[in-house]
């Protein structure tokens, strides 16, 4: 005899299993379990988000880490990441631009003024050259000379050991380098470098004692199984932070006509990643405005997310920071302060 479809078998239901395994014991979901979560019907999303929120509260606490990001060098990248409007290989309208040091100092100041504790300096490059690294060094010095003690992260592509050491010496405390998608899907998204090359940079960052920030983009044609694969591959890296982006189909890129990830799928992904990575800083990054709108952003914050990027992104715009800060206030979620992170 089979149970009526609306009845949930409590012994094998993945939400119940996760409650015991992830919430009580802090053990992240396996790939098969993540897939089950991603396949849950819409009428289970509420339960799922509530559990993901409990997991986040239990293993991370109520604080939200707020970050601002800025593009130091925009566009003209030689790589061919198919989602990226900054690749020089596609007919994207994004032109090359360099931000000068006063502009960088101002961006860091605006970010600190929101209450953010993290400021990430990003460049659209395969990896940094001497000019870029000296610009970063000068920029960090100028930010400090401005009396700004915000924590500085960088995202400058693939690194050599020498460059890793140089960034450490500049006081860069966290490095972002996204694996972007499941290993099995990566060759469909990027052909100019490999997933393994990205992984190597991540290991060097970790070994040098920098915090590892590594995430990716949902909605690049990956299957749900590949979404699950990606979540556990990230978990095996044990990153300090995972930024979760949702594809913004940008004009001129190979993915310009890809559909936007639908709200329910995005919420399942948020919760699934939290259940795979119970202790990680899980950040809402690009694309949430398009995928969720205002209501969904709140649901995400109550579904496992504990960090956000406020203000604009690299080439796309975000909501004004004040809107997100008001949302956190409304949700009674305190913003992580600098003193707590030092």
């Amino acid at each position: 005899m089979t149970a009526a479809p609306e009845q949930v078998d409590r012994s094998t239901d993945v939400v119940d299993v996760a409650r015991e395994q992830v919430l009580e014991r802090g053990v992240g979901l396996t790939e098969a379990q993540v897939l089950e979560v991603l396949e849950l019907p819409d009428d289970r999303i509420e339960d799922l988000l509530a559990l993901a929120h409990d997991v986040r509260m239990r293993w991370c606490g109520p604080e939200v880490e707020v970050e601002g990001i800025v593009s130091l060098k925009t566009g003209g990248c030689p790589e061919d990441c198919h989602f990226c409007s900054q690749s020089g290989q596609f007919p994207s309208p994004v032109r090359s631009a360099w931000l000068d040091i006063p502009g960088l100092v101002k961006a860091a100041r605006q970010t600190a003024d929101t209450g953010a504790t993290e400021f990430c300096i990003v460049a659209a490059v395969r990896g940094p050259d001497k000019r870029l690294l000296s610009q970063v060094r000068e920029g960090i010095k100028a930010i400090r000379d401005d009396g700004n003690d915000i924590q500085i992260a960088c995202s400058l592509g693939m690194l050599t050991q020498e460059q890793v050491d140089e960034l450490v010496s500049m006081g860069v405390h966290r490095y972002n380098h996204n694996l972007e998608t499941a290993r099995s899907h990566f060759p469909n998204v990027v052909t100019t470098h490999s997933w393994e090359e990205r992984w190597d940079t991540l290991r060097m960052i970790r070994d040098a004692g920098m915090e590892v920030c590594c995430g990716g983009i949902i909605g690049m044609g990956e299957s749900l199984a590949q979404r699950a694969e990606f979540a556990v591959q990230l978990a095996s890296l044990e990153p300090d932070e995972v930024p979760l982006n949702f594809l913004i189909p940008n004009p001129g890129t190979p993915y310009e006509d890809y559909p936007v990830v639908e709200g329910p799928d995005a919420l399942r992904a948020v919760a699934a990643f939290r259940l795979a990575l119970p202790r990680t800083i899980l950040r809402f990054a690009g694309g949430r405005e398009l995928t969720f709108g205002d209501l969904g952003a709140k649901q995400g914050m109550l579904g496992g997310i504990n960090a956000i990027i406020v203000g604009n992104y690299l080439t796309n715009l975000g909501r004004p920071a004040v809107q997100d800060l008001e949302m956190l206030d409304e949700l009674s979620m305190p913003i992580k302060a600098l003193s707590q992170t030092l």
């Binding site: 101002k106 605006q110 970010t111 929101t114 796309n316 004004p320 920071a321």
Partner: peptide, 9 residues
């Protein structure tokens, strides 16, 4: 095509 710089604010 313009040269565009996006900043946080």
């Amino acid at each position: 095509r313009m040269v565009v710089q996006v900043t946080p604010a």
